[in-house]
Structures are given as C-alpha cells and as structure tokens.
Nucleic acid binder design. Structure first.
Length: 277
DNA sequence: ACGAGAACCTGTTTGC
DNA sequence: TGCAAACAGGTTCTCG
C-alpha cells in the first residue's frame, strides 16, 4: 500500500495522537507477518510509554521510554488505525496486532497480505538494523540533490524506473511516485539509470522532492487499503498525472498517443512517450 | 556482481 | 452468471 507520503502522513497522525500514551495491553492474533513477531513483544511493551514517532524510508519508528523502538513496515496492504476510547472498533479480519493504551484508545495493525513486518529493538542498534542499514538517500533530507542522486545511479545498467524502486539508491519511492516523478522530470522510465546525471539528475531530484511534498500535503493517495491513522482518506490520487491513466491524455501535451503503460521488472509503469526521453 | 524474475499472501477486478 | 486469470501501493530470495 504505502509509499513515503502515506507513511509520513500516518507517522504525523501517530505522533500527534500517541506521544505520551502508555501501552496497557498488546494482543497478538498470530505469530508472524512477513517475519515472526518479536518474541516477548507483549511483555516488553506493556507499561511502556511512547515518546515520539518518526519515519525512515517506509518504516515507522515508535520510540518508547527506555531507548527501545517499535519498528513497523506496512508492506502492500498494511494499515494502522487508531480508535479513541469513545469510538469502539470491532475486531476486523486481518487485525494481526492490537495495542490498547492507558486511556482506552486502541491501535490496530491490519494487513491482509501480511507483507508488512514489526520488530522491536534497542535504540542504539537502530542504525545497524538489518532492514535500515542499507537504505539509500532520504528524498526529503538536506543531503538529497541531483549530484548525490547521480552518484548513486552511476554505472547502473538497469532502467531508471527500476533504480528509483531500489531502496538502497533512494529510500521511500514506490511504484506510483516513481512514475509520477519521472513524468515531471521529463525522463523516460526506460532510460538507463547510469545516464541520469548533470542537469537531468537535478531535474529528477527536484521532481521527486516536489511530488512527494505535494502528496504529503494531500494526505497521501488512497486506493484500496490506505487510510490515515485517523481513518481519513488521502486525496492525492486525484492529482496523479500518469499513474493508472493508460490511454488518457497527458496533462501537459495534446499528443493523441496518450499515456502509455509498460511492464518493467514485473511492475506497471506509466509515462508520456512524447515528453519523457 | 548485477539485473530480472519468482516468491511471499489475500482480495478485487477483468475477461472469456 | 461463473470461474479463472490478471493485477495490486513492497521486499527479499534465487537464478543466469
């Protein structure tokens, strides 16, 4: 489901609503998601106070008192939904882990496909965590620019689209925003990644940043599964230029060819063949 | 070592 | 209408 803008929106919602609360009860409805749930998670979390919530790439980091971090990834279909004490939520299918807080609020981790994961680690070992260690540039970070992006792309023979999905190059883009960013940068998704440098890399870095920022401002894109932590829908899907728009008119040109759909590395890519080179 | 494809799951949409 | 195939926002493993 979620790419960087959706995760960022969820993180902001969680920060606002969870900071300062204390886990009262943790219910594990199964033993594993994509990976086994951490052993002793229930005992370790109950009674712990949440200090803040942050994000790295598409990972949600819930920082607890005592320098421990609950790390969560939503995979393709994961959702996190909070219900306050006065708005009871019945247990839904695929509610795999349910957290109850000291004030009666409930947070459900729901994930039909179970591509998501949850881990619990000491804060000190976070930088070396297996899942975070190899992540690439944070596209909203200060050090993200065309030159640094080009450095990561140098020598790569795969398509630029495939490279943008490689989290070791840049961390947080997914299938929707990769197509959208390439469109706004006028770069063909089929172009070899290693040939994106100089002004072209500058344009791509700028398009990535702008696309993600606009999407965050809209609360992310709601398709099948995604909702904000509050349960509200995002609305950036109404602003997509190319994603899911095969055959439709490109928003910036009047060519009759329309938006094309191709398959790269088994994922759909959408682009305008006239403007993207 | 790299890139492409399969695999992991369930649910929904599409096409015959 | 019914059933099967295709497809879905991600990541990781295997194979050539």
């Amino acid at each position: 489901m979620p790419e960087l803008p959706e995760v960022e929106t969820i993180v902001r919602g969680l920060e606002q609503r969870l900071a300062g609360r204390r886990f009262r009860q943790v219910t594990l409805n199964r033993a594993d998601l994509r990976t086994p749930l951490p052993t002793g998670l229930k005992a370790k979390l109950e009674g712990k106070r949440i200090e803040r919530v942050s994000r790295r790439a598409k990972y949600i980091l819930i920082h607890c008192a005592g320098d421990a971090v609950l790390l969560a990834h939503l995979g393709m279909s994961g959702r996190i939904v909070i219900s306050e004490a006065n708005e009871k939520r019945l247990r839904q299918k695929h509610d795999h882990v349910v957290f109850t807080f000291d004030d009666g609020a409930v947070l459900a981790f729901n994930d039909a496909r179970r591509f998501g994961m949850i881990d619990y680690v000491a804060a000190a070992q976070l930088p070396n965590h297996k899942l975070l260690r190899h992540l690439g540039l944070e596209p909203l970070g200060h050090e993200f620019n065309g030159a640094n992006l080009a450095k990561r792309l140098a020598g790569k023979n795969c398509s630029i689209k495939a490279a943008l999905l490689d989290q070791r190059v840049i961390a947080g883009l997914g299938n929707i925003y990769a197509s959208e960013a390439l469109y706004w940068a006028n770069i063909s998704p089929r172009r070899r990644a290693g040939t994106v440098l100089g002004a072209r890399a500058d344009a791509l870095a700028a398009a990535i940043r702008k696309t993600l920022e606009r999407a965050i401002a809209a609360g992310g894109s709601s398709l099948r599964d995604y909702v904000q932590a509050s349960g509200e829908l995002g609305y950036f899907q109404h602003h997509w230029a190319v994603y899911g728009k095969e055959g439709e008119k490109c928003p910036r040109c009047d060519c009759h060819r329309g938006i094309k759909r191709i398959v790269q590395n088994a994922r759909s890519t959408f682009y305008c063949a006239k403007y993207q080179r």
